[in-house]
């Protein structure tokens, strides 16, 4: 377990956060390699079920990131997403999933530096929490 590294999935919107991640890359900004990126058209595309499935399938943390308020390519996708995230976060924490497992951020296409910081922060939070156990489905491990 000592060599355990947090495994984090990041759902990044195509127009801002994904481009932000790209900028972090081309700018050669260092950030932890723990995150696997899934590009989505908009943060509003992120069904809370994606987050739950990620946890169920063994990700230790989930990051969802979209355009800053007012910057959404689809005008209001991120505003709708913000309401969904607030509800999802409340539900997860209420049933006892550790705060910090699931996080949300706004990262614009120009914020390569911020993207690296967000990833570092989420990775550190999840590392402190340790491997995810709650909601994780183990298959093949018997009943």
């Amino acid at each position: 377990m000592s060599d355990w590294e947090p495994k984090i999935v990041a759902f990044l919107c195509n127009w801002c956060s994904y481009a932000g991640a790209d900028l972090a890359g081309v700018s050669r900004i260092q950030y932890p390699p723990n995150v696997r990126v899934v590009r989505v058209p908009c943060s509003g595309r992120v069904n809370p079920l994606f987050v739950l499935k990620s946890l169920e399938n063994g990700f230790d943390g989930v990051l969802v990131s979209g355009c800053h308020p007012g910057d959404c390519h689809y005008i209001s996708g991120n505003y709708i997403a913000r309401r969904k995230f607030a509800t999802l976060k409340t539900a997860l924490e209420f049933i006892g999933v550790e705060p910090g497992r699931v996080q949300f951020s706004w990262v614009s296409a120009g914020e390569g530096e911020k993207f690296a910081q967000v990833v570092a922060r989420v990775t550190e939070d999840v590392r402190k929490l340790g491997p995810a156990k709650r909601l994780v489905k183990t298959i093949g491990g018997g009943q």
């Binding site: 308020p69 007012g70 505003y79 913000r82 607030a86 976060k89």
Partner: peptide
């Protein structure tokens, strides 16, 4: 219904 709409002023203290 609340989750079918939004307000620009919605609180977002949880966003990084």
């Amino acid at each position: 219904p609340a989750l079918a709409t939004y307000s620009e002023e919605d609180k977002q203290e949880f966003m990084l």
